[in-house]
Amino acid sequence: MINVLILDDDPMVAHFNELYLKEIEGFNLMAVAHSYEEAIAKLETVTIDLILLDIYMAGKSGLELLKKIREKDKWSVDVILITAASDVESIQTALRHGAVDYIIKPFDFERFQQALLRYKDKQQIIEGQGHLNQKALDEQLFGITDQIKNELPKGLSSSTLTIILEVIDSIGETSFSTEEVAEKSEISRVSVRKYLKFMAEIGVLGEKMTYGPVGRPTHLYVYKKEKKKSLSKFL
């Protein structure tokens, strides 16, 4: 099990992260902290493998904690940033101090899950090997393959992608939800979500979240029509 510390000064956001974490096998929430000082105290008393770290906090920031961790040899801990800080300086500082991933708020469960599972996979590879050759290192840790294939991810088809793209074209520049595309295309929401996620990953769709008065946030997409040509090789 991977022991996790969640650090966010907003109790509601910390709670959302905790709920998301519970949905992913292989992770154990050891502690929740709401300040730099509280996080240091947890690190001194609890064995932590991974910190889900916010930057903006009252008092010392998450980046200051990250720098402190790297100065202390006794803390062998990895860090994934989960923050509203989207400026290049913050991102560069986090990466230079060894952050293994950087998630910008607002985010959805799929992106959170992707970061955690990717981290878990890399940890399992590292722990299960005494040595790695260059090919194994490239493929297993860095995702580098010998050839870049112009193929859709497994389970997606060009014919369905075409249908979904036609619906998105008809919607235009207005933001839309998975449910709206599913209704117009008469394709299941589960299937549509996979195609929209793929299109977002290659930059054809932008993503944003809207928050209602109650309940979970709504995940919306925005069509970047100028990027449509990126899909031509898949159709």
Rank of each mutant, 00 (worst) to 15 (best):
M1A: 10
I2C: 10
I6K: 09
L7Y: 06
D10W: 08
F16E: 14
N17E: 15
E18A: 11
L19T: 12
L21M: 14
K22P: 04
I24S: 08
E25Q: 12
N28G: 03
H34Y: 14
A41K: 15
L53T: 05
M57N: 00
S61F: 02
L63V: 05
K67A: 15
R70Q: 15
E71K: 14
K72Q: 15
W75Y: 15
V79K: 00
L81A: 06
I82A: 04
A84C: 07
A84N: 11
D87L: 05
V88R: 14
G98K: 05
G98E: 02
V100Q: 08
I104P: 09
K105N: 11
D108T: 02
F109T: 04
E110Q: 14
R111Q: 14
A115F: 00
A115V: 02
Y119N: 03
Q123E: 13
I126N: 02
A136F: 04
A136W: 03
A136G: 09
K149V: 09
E151F: 01
E151W: 01
P153M: 09
S159F: 10
E166W: 09
I168A: 01
E173Q: 15
S175F: 08
S175R: 11
S175L: 04
T178D: 03
T178F: 05
E180L: 10
E186P: 00
I187A: 04
V192M: 00
V192F: 00
K194E: 13
Y195F: 07
M199R: 02
I202P: 01
G203F: 11
L205T: 06
G206T: 08
G206C: 07
K208T: 13
K208P: 04
M209H: 11
P213Y: 13
P213T: 13
G215V: 06
Y221Q: 04
V222K: 14
K225D: 09
E226A: 14
K228R: 15
S232H: 14
